[in-house]
Protein backbone atom coordinates (compact mmCIF):
# COMPACT_ATOMS: atom_id res chain seq x y z
CA UNK A 1 0.00 0.00 0.00
CA UNK A 2 1.16 3.49 -0.84
CA UNK A 3 -0.12 6.04 1.62
CA UNK A 4 -0.26 9.82 1.23
CA UNK A 5 -0.76 11.64 4.53
CA UNK A 6 -1.49 15.38 4.22
CA UNK A 7 1.01 15.70 1.41
CA UNK A 8 1.61 19.19 0.07
CA UNK A 9 3.83 20.32 -2.76
CA UNK A 10 4.61 23.96 -3.24
CA UNK A 11 6.99 24.84 -6.09
CA UNK A 12 9.67 27.48 -5.50
CA UNK A 13 7.60 30.00 -7.48
CA UNK A 14 4.78 29.65 -4.94
CA UNK A 15 2.44 27.40 -6.96
CA UNK A 16 0.71 24.93 -4.70
CA UNK A 17 0.44 21.93 -7.02
CA UNK A 18 -0.78 19.45 -4.43
CA UNK A 19 -2.63 20.51 -1.29
CA UNK A 20 -2.81 18.31 1.85
CA UNK A 21 -3.54 15.18 -0.14
CA UNK A 22 -4.41 12.11 1.91
CA UNK A 23 -4.95 8.88 0.06
CA UNK A 24 -4.43 5.13 0.41
CA UNK A 25 -3.42 3.36 -2.77
CA UNK A 26 -4.13 -0.35 -2.35
CA UNK A 27 -1.56 -2.93 -3.39
CA UNK A 28 -1.91 -5.12 -6.48
CA UNK A 29 -4.57 -2.93 -8.03
CA UNK A 30 -4.74 -0.12 -10.57
CA UNK A 31 -5.38 3.29 -9.04
CA UNK A 32 -5.99 6.11 -11.50
CA UNK A 33 -5.36 9.81 -10.82
CA UNK A 34 -7.63 11.82 -13.08
CA UNK A 35 -8.45 15.50 -13.32
CA UNK A 36 -8.16 18.58 -15.52
CA UNK A 37 -4.82 19.83 -16.82
CA UNK A 38 -2.62 21.35 -14.13
CA UNK A 39 -4.47 19.79 -11.21
CA UNK A 40 -1.32 18.16 -9.85
CA UNK A 41 -1.54 14.58 -11.17
CA UNK A 42 2.02 14.40 -12.43
CA UNK A 43 3.33 16.12 -9.32
CA UNK A 44 1.53 13.62 -7.08
CA UNK A 45 2.81 10.68 -9.11
CA UNK A 46 6.41 11.86 -9.19
CA UNK A 47 6.49 12.47 -5.47
CA UNK A 48 6.15 8.69 -5.09
CA UNK A 49 9.55 8.01 -6.69
CA UNK A 50 10.98 11.25 -5.34
CA UNK A 51 11.76 12.75 -8.74
CA UNK A 52 9.80 15.58 -7.13
CA UNK A 53 10.29 16.07 -3.40
CA UNK A 54 7.23 16.86 -1.32
CA UNK A 55 7.16 20.06 0.73
CA UNK A 56 5.35 18.58 3.73
CA UNK A 57 3.37 15.54 4.82
CA UNK A 58 4.37 11.92 4.58
CA UNK A 59 4.37 9.31 1.83
CA UNK A 60 4.96 5.70 2.79
CA UNK A 61 5.16 2.39 0.97
CA UNK A 62 3.98 -0.55 3.07
CA UNK A 63 4.33 1.61 6.15
CA UNK A 64 7.86 2.77 5.50
CA UNK A 65 8.51 6.46 4.78
CA UNK A 66 9.98 6.79 1.28
CA UNK A 67 12.38 9.42 2.60
CA UNK A 68 13.98 6.84 4.88
CA UNK A 69 16.31 5.52 2.17
CA UNK A 70 18.28 6.71 -0.82
CA UNK A 71 16.16 8.01 -3.74
CA UNK A 72 18.17 6.20 -6.43
CA UNK A 73 17.60 2.83 -4.74
CA UNK A 74 13.93 3.67 -4.30
CA UNK A 75 13.55 4.45 -8.02
CA UNK A 76 15.15 1.19 -9.13
CA UNK A 77 12.37 -0.60 -7.29
CA UNK A 78 9.57 1.38 -8.96
CA UNK A 79 8.71 1.05 -12.64
CA UNK A 80 8.01 4.29 -14.49
CA UNK A 81 6.33 4.85 -17.86
CA UNK A 82 5.81 8.29 -19.41
CA UNK A 83 3.88 9.83 -22.27
CA UNK A 84 6.33 9.64 -25.15
CA UNK A 85 7.90 6.51 -23.64
CA UNK A 86 11.15 8.43 -23.06
CA UNK A 87 13.18 5.58 -24.51
CA UNK A 88 16.93 6.02 -24.74
CA UNK A 89 17.45 6.79 -28.45
CA UNK A 90 21.02 5.49 -28.51
CA UNK A 91 20.21 2.09 -27.08
CA UNK A 92 18.57 -0.81 -28.87
CA UNK A 93 15.13 -1.99 -27.83
CA UNK A 94 16.51 -4.91 -25.82
CA UNK A 95 19.08 -2.69 -24.10
CA UNK A 96 16.36 -0.20 -23.23
CA UNK A 97 14.36 -2.95 -21.58
CA UNK A 98 17.47 -4.19 -19.78
CA UNK A 99 18.19 -0.78 -18.26
CA UNK A 100 17.23 -1.42 -14.64
CA UNK A 101 18.62 -4.98 -14.39
CA UNK A 102 21.91 -3.53 -15.66
CA UNK A 103 21.82 -0.76 -13.08
CA UNK A 104 21.19 -3.42 -10.45
CA UNK A 105 24.17 -5.41 -11.71
CA UNK A 106 22.37 -8.59 -12.79
CA UNK A 107 24.49 -10.97 -14.82
CA UNK A 108 24.41 -10.48 -18.57
CA UNK A 109 22.69 -13.67 -19.58
CA UNK A 110 19.88 -13.37 -17.08
CA UNK A 111 19.38 -9.71 -18.02
CA UNK A 112 19.07 -10.48 -21.69
CA UNK A 113 16.80 -13.46 -21.17
CA UNK A 114 14.51 -11.38 -18.96
CA UNK A 115 14.45 -8.54 -21.49
CA UNK A 116 13.60 -10.84 -24.39
CA UNK A 117 10.86 -12.53 -22.40
CA UNK A 118 9.36 -9.17 -21.48
CA UNK A 119 9.28 -8.04 -25.09
CA UNK A 120 7.04 -10.97 -25.87
CA UNK A 121 4.96 -10.33 -22.79
CA UNK A 122 4.07 -6.84 -23.91
CA UNK A 123 3.19 -8.11 -27.36
CA UNK A 124 6.31 -7.22 -29.31
CA UNK A 125 7.98 -9.35 -31.94
CA UNK A 126 11.43 -10.45 -30.62
CA UNK A 127 12.75 -9.54 -34.07
CA UNK A 128 12.46 -5.89 -33.02
CA UNK A 129 14.98 -6.42 -30.21
CA UNK A 130 17.98 -5.04 -32.07
CA UNK A 131 16.21 -2.01 -33.51
CA UNK A 132 16.60 1.49 -32.19
CA UNK A 133 13.57 3.36 -30.77
CA UNK A 134 13.43 5.66 -33.82
CA UNK A 135 12.65 2.58 -35.90
CA UNK A 136 9.47 1.79 -33.97
CA UNK A 137 5.94 3.17 -34.20
CA UNK A 138 4.55 5.17 -31.28
CA UNK A 139 2.53 2.21 -30.04
CA UNK A 140 5.54 -0.10 -30.18
CA UNK A 141 7.68 2.44 -28.33
CA UNK A 142 5.08 2.63 -25.60
CA UNK A 143 5.16 -1.16 -25.23
CA UNK A 144 8.93 -1.05 -24.89
CA UNK A 145 8.41 1.61 -22.22
CA UNK A 146 6.14 -0.75 -20.30
CA UNK A 147 8.61 -3.63 -20.70
CA UNK A 148 11.43 -1.41 -19.42
CA UNK A 149 9.38 -0.48 -16.37
CA UNK A 150 8.68 -4.14 -15.61
CA UNK A 151 12.18 -5.51 -16.23
CA UNK A 152 13.38 -5.74 -12.64
CA UNK A 153 9.96 -6.97 -11.49
CA UNK A 154 9.13 -3.95 -9.29
CA UNK A 155 6.15 -4.14 -6.98
CA UNK A 156 5.00 -0.69 -8.04
CA UNK A 157 4.56 0.80 -11.48
CA UNK A 158 3.91 4.50 -12.10
CA UNK A 159 2.39 5.48 -15.44
CA UNK A 160 1.99 9.12 -16.50
CA UNK A 161 -0.44 9.45 -19.42
CA UNK A 162 1.34 6.55 -21.12
CA UNK A 163 -1.21 6.12 -23.90
CA UNK A 164 -2.24 9.69 -24.65
CA UNK A 165 0.14 10.27 -27.56
CA UNK A 166 -1.03 7.33 -29.69
CA UNK A 167 -4.07 7.15 -31.97
CA UNK A 168 -7.38 5.92 -30.52
CA UNK A 169 -7.20 2.44 -32.07
CA UNK A 170 -3.73 1.76 -30.70
CA UNK A 171 -4.71 3.33 -27.37
CA UNK A 172 -7.61 0.93 -27.07
CA UNK A 173 -5.28 -2.01 -27.81
CA UNK A 174 -2.72 -0.85 -25.27
CA UNK A 175 -5.40 -0.41 -22.62
CA UNK A 176 -6.73 -3.92 -23.21
CA UNK A 177 -3.23 -5.32 -23.02
CA UNK A 178 -2.45 -3.48 -19.82
CA UNK A 179 -5.54 -5.04 -18.24
CA UNK A 180 -4.57 -8.48 -19.52
CA UNK A 181 -1.01 -8.04 -18.30
CA UNK A 182 -2.21 -6.83 -14.92
CA UNK A 183 -4.30 -9.98 -14.49
CA UNK A 184 -1.01 -11.95 -14.66
CA UNK A 185 1.34 -9.68 -12.77
CA UNK A 186 -0.90 -7.99 -10.20
CA UNK A 187 1.32 -4.94 -9.69
CA UNK A 188 0.44 -1.89 -7.67
CA UNK A 189 -0.12 0.49 -10.56
CA UNK A 190 -0.65 4.23 -10.23
CA UNK A 191 -1.91 5.55 -13.55
CA UNK A 192 -2.31 9.21 -14.47
CA UNK A 193 -4.68 10.39 -17.18
CA UNK A 194 -6.88 13.38 -17.95
CA UNK A 195 -9.29 11.12 -19.81
CA UNK A 196 -12.18 10.06 -17.58
CA UNK A 197 -13.10 7.20 -19.94
CA UNK A 198 -9.63 5.76 -19.62
CA UNK A 199 -9.81 6.17 -15.84
CA UNK A 200 -13.09 4.30 -15.65
CA UNK A 201 -11.92 1.57 -17.96
CA UNK A 202 -8.61 0.86 -16.25
CA UNK A 203 -9.06 1.83 -12.63
CA UNK A 204 -9.94 -0.44 -9.74
CA UNK A 205 -10.04 2.86 -7.92
CA UNK A 206 -10.17 6.39 -9.29
CA UNK A 207 -8.91 9.51 -7.53
CA UNK A 208 -10.46 12.63 -9.03
CA UNK A 209 -8.33 15.71 -8.38
CA UNK A 210 -9.41 19.30 -8.84
CA UNK A 211 -7.15 22.21 -9.77
CA UNK A 212 -5.03 23.22 -6.81
CA UNK A 213 -4.24 19.60 -6.07
CA UNK A 214 -7.24 18.83 -3.89
CA UNK A 215 -8.77 15.37 -3.81
CA UNK A 216 -12.39 15.60 -4.95
CA UNK A 217 -13.32 11.93 -4.72
CA UNK A 218 -11.66 8.56 -4.30
CA UNK A 219 -13.84 5.62 -5.26
CA UNK A 220 -14.18 2.59 -7.53
CA UNK A 221 -15.43 3.64 -10.99
CA UNK A 222 -18.95 2.25 -10.55
CA UNK A 223 -19.40 4.26 -7.38
CA UNK A 224 -17.95 7.35 -9.01
CA UNK A 225 -20.53 7.13 -11.78
CA UNK A 226 -23.41 6.30 -9.46
CA UNK A 227 -22.60 8.74 -6.67
CA UNK A 228 -20.41 11.64 -7.73
CA UNK A 229 -19.31 13.45 -4.56
CA UNK A 230 -20.11 16.93 -5.83
CA UNK A 231 -20.85 19.08 -8.86
CA UNK A 232 -17.22 19.23 -9.90
CA UNK A 233 -16.95 15.45 -10.12
CA UNK A 234 -20.32 15.22 -11.82
CA UNK A 235 -19.28 17.83 -14.37
CA UNK A 236 -15.96 16.15 -14.94
CA UNK A 237 -17.49 12.74 -15.54
CA UNK A 238 -19.63 14.32 -18.21
CA UNK A 239 -23.18 14.18 -19.49
CA UNK A 240 -23.50 10.51 -20.30
CA UNK A 241 -22.48 9.07 -16.95
CA UNK A 242 -25.74 7.15 -16.75
CA UNK A 243 -24.95 5.42 -20.00
CA UNK A 244 -21.34 4.79 -18.97
CA UNK A 245 -22.44 3.29 -15.67
CA UNK A 246 -23.89 0.42 -17.73
CA UNK A 247 -20.26 -0.68 -18.19
CA UNK A 248 -20.42 -1.99 -14.64
CA UNK A 249 -23.68 -3.93 -14.92
CA UNK A 250 -23.38 -7.41 -16.37
CA UNK A 251 -25.53 -8.65 -19.22
CA UNK A 252 -26.06 -11.97 -17.41
CA UNK A 253 -29.59 -11.18 -16.32
CA UNK A 254 -30.89 -10.21 -19.75
CA UNK A 255 -34.01 -12.19 -20.74
CA UNK A 256 -32.73 -13.57 -24.06
CA UNK A 257 -35.20 -14.68 -26.71
CA UNK A 258 -34.59 -17.69 -28.99
CA UNK A 259 -32.39 -17.25 -32.08
CA UNK A 260 -34.80 -16.32 -34.92
CA UNK A 261 -34.77 -18.18 -38.22
CA UNK A 262 -33.94 -14.90 -40.00
CA UNK A 263 -30.42 -15.02 -38.61
CA UNK A 264 -28.20 -16.59 -41.26
CA UNK A 265 -25.51 -18.84 -39.79
CA UNK A 266 -22.15 -19.18 -41.54
CA UNK A 267 -20.16 -22.39 -42.13
CA UNK A 268 -18.16 -21.63 -38.97
CA UNK A 269 -21.34 -21.62 -36.90
CA UNK A 270 -21.14 -17.85 -36.33
CA UNK A 271 -23.90 -15.40 -37.29
CA UNK A 272 -23.42 -14.30 -40.90
CA UNK A 273 -26.22 -11.75 -41.36
CA UNK A 274 -29.92 -10.97 -41.09
CA UNK A 275 -32.11 -12.10 -43.97
CA UNK A 276 -34.59 -9.41 -44.88
CA UNK A 277 -36.64 -9.04 -48.07
CA UNK A 278 -34.24 -11.25 -50.00
CA UNK A 279 -31.19 -9.29 -48.82
CA UNK A 280 -28.64 -10.18 -46.18
CA UNK A 281 -27.93 -7.31 -43.77
CA UNK A 282 -24.81 -7.17 -41.54
CA UNK A 283 -25.19 -8.62 -38.05
CA UNK A 284 -23.87 -5.59 -36.16
CA UNK A 285 -21.97 -5.90 -32.89
CA UNK A 286 -22.43 -9.10 -30.88
CA UNK A 287 -22.00 -9.58 -27.13
CA UNK A 288 -21.38 -12.35 -24.64
CA UNK A 289 -23.15 -13.22 -21.39
CA UNK A 290 -20.19 -12.00 -19.35
CA UNK A 291 -20.05 -8.62 -21.10
CA UNK A 292 -21.54 -5.43 -19.73
CA UNK A 293 -24.99 -4.09 -20.31
CA UNK A 294 -23.29 -1.35 -22.31
CA UNK A 295 -22.01 -3.95 -24.78
CA UNK A 296 -25.48 -5.52 -25.01
CA UNK A 297 -27.04 -2.13 -25.64
CA UNK A 298 -24.46 -1.37 -28.29
CA UNK A 299 -25.33 -4.66 -29.94
CA UNK A 300 -29.02 -3.75 -30.12
CA UNK A 301 -28.24 -0.22 -31.36
CA UNK A 302 -25.96 -1.45 -34.15
CA UNK A 303 -28.27 -4.23 -35.30
CA UNK A 304 -30.11 -3.36 -38.56
CA UNK A 305 -33.32 -4.84 -37.18
CA UNK A 306 -33.04 -3.88 -33.52
CA UNK A 307 -32.04 -7.38 -32.37
CA UNK A 308 -28.77 -7.74 -30.44
CA UNK A 309 -27.13 -11.15 -30.82
CA UNK A 310 -25.66 -12.87 -27.78
CA UNK A 311 -22.95 -15.43 -28.62
CA UNK A 312 -21.04 -18.05 -26.62
CA UNK A 313 -17.25 -18.37 -26.25
CA UNK A 314 -17.00 -19.96 -29.69
CA UNK A 315 -18.96 -17.13 -31.30
CA UNK A 316 -22.11 -19.22 -31.88
CA UNK A 317 -25.42 -17.42 -31.29
CA UNK A 318 -27.26 -18.41 -28.09
CA UNK A 319 -30.07 -15.86 -28.09
CA UNK A 320 -31.19 -12.35 -28.99
CA UNK A 321 -32.40 -9.29 -27.13
CA UNK A 322 -34.42 -6.30 -28.38
CA UNK A 323 -35.25 -2.80 -27.07
CA UNK A 324 -38.13 -4.02 -24.92
CA UNK A 325 -35.97 -6.68 -23.31
CA UNK A 326 -33.29 -4.09 -22.57
CA UNK A 327 -35.58 -1.52 -21.01
CA UNK A 328 -36.92 -4.17 -18.66
CA UNK A 329 -33.42 -4.52 -17.21
CA UNK A 330 -32.60 -0.81 -17.33
CA UNK A 331 -35.68 0.03 -15.31
CA UNK A 332 -35.93 -2.72 -12.74
Amino acid sequence: MIEFESVTKQYPDGTVAVDTLSLRIPSNEITVFVGPSGCGKTTSLRMINRTIERTSGRISIDGEDINAGDPVTLRRGIGYVIQHAGLFPHKTVVDNVATVPKLLGWDKRKTRATAMELLERVGLDPKLAERYPAQLSGGQQQRVGVARALAADPKIMLMDEPFSAVDPVVRHQLQEELLRLQRDIGKTIVFVTHDIDEAIKLGDNVAVLRVGGKLAQFAPPAELLAKPADEFVEGFIGQDRGYRALTFVTAENLPLGPVPADLAIGADGKPAGWRKDGDTLPVGAVFQRGDSLRAAMDSVLTSPIGQGVCVDEAGKPVGVIDYTGLTGVLRP
Binding site: T51, V72, R75, G86, L87, F88, H90, V100, L103
Partner: peptide, 27 residues
Protein backbone atom coordinates in the same frame (compact mmCIF):
# COMPACT_ATOMS: atom_id res chain seq x y z
CA UNK B 1 18.86 15.38 -25.06
CA UNK B 2 15.05 15.29 -24.93
CA UNK B 3 13.48 16.26 -21.62
CA UNK B 4 11.53 12.99 -21.37
CA UNK B 5 14.71 10.98 -21.88
CA UNK B 6 16.35 12.78 -18.96
CA UNK B 7 13.27 12.31 -16.87
CA UNK B 8 13.11 8.62 -17.71
CA UNK B 9 16.78 8.17 -16.85
CA UNK B 10 16.40 9.78 -13.44
CA UNK B 11 13.19 7.88 -12.78
CA UNK B 12 14.58 4.42 -13.50
CA UNK B 13 17.38 5.13 -11.05
CA UNK B 14 20.47 6.54 -12.77
CA UNK B 15 22.79 8.49 -10.48
CA UNK B 16 23.97 11.82 -11.90
CA UNK B 17 27.50 10.87 -12.98
CA UNK B 18 26.39 7.62 -14.55
CA UNK B 19 23.55 9.37 -16.35
CA UNK B 20 25.81 12.05 -17.79
CA UNK B 21 28.38 9.51 -18.95
CA UNK B 22 26.04 6.88 -20.39
CA UNK B 23 22.94 8.81 -21.45
CA UNK B 24 23.56 12.55 -21.90
CA UNK B 25 27.00 12.52 -23.50
CA UNK B 26 26.42 9.65 -25.96
CA UNK B 27 23.25 11.38 -27.17
Amino acid sequence: VPEEVLQAAVSVGYGTLRRVMTIDLPI
